[in-house]
Design a protein around this nucleic acid. Structure first.
Length: 421
RNA sequence: GGAGACGUCGCAUAGUUCGGCCUAGUGCACCACCCUGCUAAGGUGGAGAACCCUCACGGGUUCCGAGGGUUCAAAUCCCUCCGUCUCCGCCA
C-alpha cells in the first residue's frame, strides 16, 4: 500500500513513477479524490456517533414518562448513524481498492521502461573459455549422475527432476555455504512454512497480476509459496518491532513452488525453470532511511557468494516496468551460462521500502515514540538454479566438473566431480 | 474425526449470571520524579493501537480473537468463522 501522505503531498512524484512503469496516472487522481471522499464521510459518521453516545446517556438517566419520547428520537438518530457508518465503510474500502492498485513509488535513478530497459551496473569476472565444445548442464548432470530429469517427469510431470548423488550433495553444499555466510553477517536462520494463508499471500503482494503463478489448495484455503519471502514478510506482520539495535535480518531456507503458467515452451530443457526448487533467502526489516544502504549490503553479500562460486556475472538495475508492484528498486545478478552464450538471472534483490510493511502492518517505534511502517528488503543468497552456472562454468573436457574452492569443505574436500564413463 | 473449556489495552487477571454506574478495574513489568548512605522497599504521576479534525495546543471516533446480527444502547445477548488448551479416537 502506498503512503497516503505522499499521495496528498506529492502526487506528481507518484505520477512520474507510474509513467516510468508504463502504468496509468489517472488512478492517482482517482485515489486522491477517493481519499478526500473517505475523510469527509468519516468525519460525518464520527460527529453523528458522538451525538448518539451523548444521547444514550440522556436516555439511560431519563425519567420514565420522558423515555418513550426520547426513544423515538433515538431510533431516528440510530438510523442516521447506521447509514453514515455504511457510507464511511464504503468510502474506506473504495479508497483501499484504488490506492491498492497503485504500485510502489520507484527510487530516483531506476531506469524507465520494460523488461529490456534495464541498466548495467557492472560486469565481473572472465567469461569461461573452453578449448573443447562445452556441454550443457543437462548433459553434464547425466554424465555425473547428478540430475535425473526423465524420472522427474515420470513421477511428477514436466519441469520436475531428481537431484541425485553429487547433484544432491552439491545443492546441499551450496545452501550450507550460503547459510554460513548469512550467519557470519548476523542473519537469524529460519526454516519457513511453505503453505500460507490468503491474507499473508496478498499482504506480500503476490496475489496481484501474477496470481496464476501460484499453487493454491482450495480444500484448505492455503497457498504454496514461490519464495520464503512470503513467510519471512509475514513473520512480523501486525507487530511493532524494536529496530533501535539495528536491522532485523533473517535467512529463510525453504523449498519454493511455482506454476510457471506464463512460460510455456520457455526454458524447457534442464533445471533452469522448474516447478520446485530450494532457496536461501535474505530478508531485512530496517528503518526506512536505512533501506537503500541495506539494499547495497544485500547486493554485496550476493556478489560475494557468486564470487565464491567462481562465476562470471553482471549486475543490472531492473527497469521500472519490470519491478513487482511492491518493489521500489530491484537489482538482479545474472551469471554467464556458457552454452546459452548469455547471462541468466541467479539472484534478485528488492527494496520494498515501506510499501509491503504498510500492507502487513509491520511498524517500529520512532525516536519521538510514534509508530511508523518499517522498510522491508529481500534477496536471494543461493538457489538450485545456481547448479546450472556452476556445472557449465567449471566443466572439464571429459565432462567432469571442478569444484569451486569455497564449496570443497562442504563436499568432504572433493575437488572434482568425476564423470561416470 | 468426536466431546468440552477458553480468547479482555506488554504479561497476569476482574468484569459476561441479569445489556446502561466499563470513558474496561486491579497486580506485575515499564518510564519520569520524590524519598532513603547504595541496593531493595516505599510514595507521586505517566503510560496501548488505528483513524479523523487542527499550523499547533487540543478535541473526536473506533478497537475486549475476527466478521455479522438484535437493541435507543453490546466486553456482556444471538449467529458464523479463526485460534488455543484438555480429554477421547485414528495415524505416523
Amino acid at each position: 500500500m502506498i503512503d497516503p501522505q505522499i499521495l496528498r503531498d506529492n502526487p506528481d512524484a507518484v505520477k512520474r513513477s507510474q509513467i516510468a512503469r508504463g502504468s496509468s496516472t489517472d488512478i492517482v487522481d482517482e485515489a486522491i479524490a477517493a481519499d478526500a471522499g473517505r475523510r469527509a464521510s468519516i468525519g460525518e459518521f464520527e460527529n453523528l456517533r458522538a451525538e448518539q453516545n451523548l444521547f444514550g446517556k440522556t436516555v439511560a438517566s431519563a425519567a420514565k414518562e420522558q423515555k418513550s419520547a426520547l426513544l423515538a428520537e433515538a431510533q431516528d438518530l440510530a438510523a442516521r448513524v447506521k447509514a453514515a457508518q455504511q457510507q464511511a465503510q464504503d468510502a474506506e474500502s473504495e479508497f483501499a481498492r484504488i490506492a491498492g492498485s497503485i504500485a510502489n513509488v520507484i527510487i530516483e535513478g531506476v531506469p524507465a521502461g520494460g523488461e529490456d530497459d534495464w541498466s548495467l551496473v557492472r560486469e565481473v569476472g572472465e567469461k569461461a573459455q573452453f578449448d573443447f565444445e562445452p556441454r550443457d548442464h543437462v548433459e553434464i548432470g547425466e554424465l555425473l549422475g547428478a540430475i535425473d530429469i526423465a524420472r522427474g517427469v515420470k513421477v511428477s510431470g514436466s519441469r520436475f527432476y531428481f537431484l541425485k548423488g553429487v547433484g544432491a550433495r552439491l545443492e546441499i553444499a551450496l545452501m550450507n555455504l550460503a547459510l554460513d555466510r548469512a550467519l557470519q553477517a548476523n542473519f537469524t536462520p529460519l526454516i519457513t512454512p511453505t503453505l500460507v494463508r490468503p491474507e499473508i499471500m496478498s499482504g506480500t503482494g503476490f496475489l496481484g497480476e501474477h496470481a496464476d503463478e501460484i499453487y493454491y489448495l482450495p480444500a484448505d484455503e492455503l497457498y504454496l509459496t514461490g519464495t520464503s519471502e512470503v513467510a519471512l514478510a509475514g513473520f512480523h506482520s501486525d507487530e511493532i518491532l524494536d529496530l533501535s539495535e539495528g536491522p532485523l535480518r533473517y535467512a529463510g531456507w525453504s523449498t519454493c513452488y511455482r506454476r510457471e503458467a506464463g512460460s510455456a515452451g520457455k526454458d524447457n530443457r534442464g533445471i533452469l525453470r522448474v516447478h520446485q526448487f530450494n532457496k536461501l533467502e535474505m530478508f531485512s526489516y530496517v528503518q526506512p532511511e536505512d533501506a537503500e544502504a541495506e539494499h547495497l549490503r544485500l547486493l554485496a553479500w550476493q556478489e560475494s557468494m557468486l564470487q565464491a562460486c567462481e562465476l562470471s556475472y553482471r549486475v543490472i538495475d531492473v527497469a521500472a516496468g519490470d519491478l513487482g508492484s511492491s518493489a521500489a528498486r530491484k537489482y538482479d545478478i545474472e551469471a554467464w551460462v556458457p552454452t546459452q552464450g548469455t547471462y541468466r538471472e541467479l539472484t534478485s534483490t528488492s527494496n520494498c521500502s515501506s510499501y509491503q510493511a504498510r500492507r502487513l502492518e509491520i511498524r517500529y517505534r520512532t525516536e519521538s515514540g510514534k509508530t511508523a511502517p518499517v522498510a522491508t528488503l529481500n534477496g536471494t543468497l543461493a538457489t538450485t538454479r545456481w547448479l546450472v552456472a556452476i556445472l557449465e562454468t567449471h566443466q572439464l573436457a571429459d565432462g567432469s566438473v571442478k569444484v569451486p574452492v569455497a564449496l570443497r569443505p562442504y563436499l568432504g574436500g572433493l575437488e572434482v566431480l568425476e564423470a561416470k564413463t
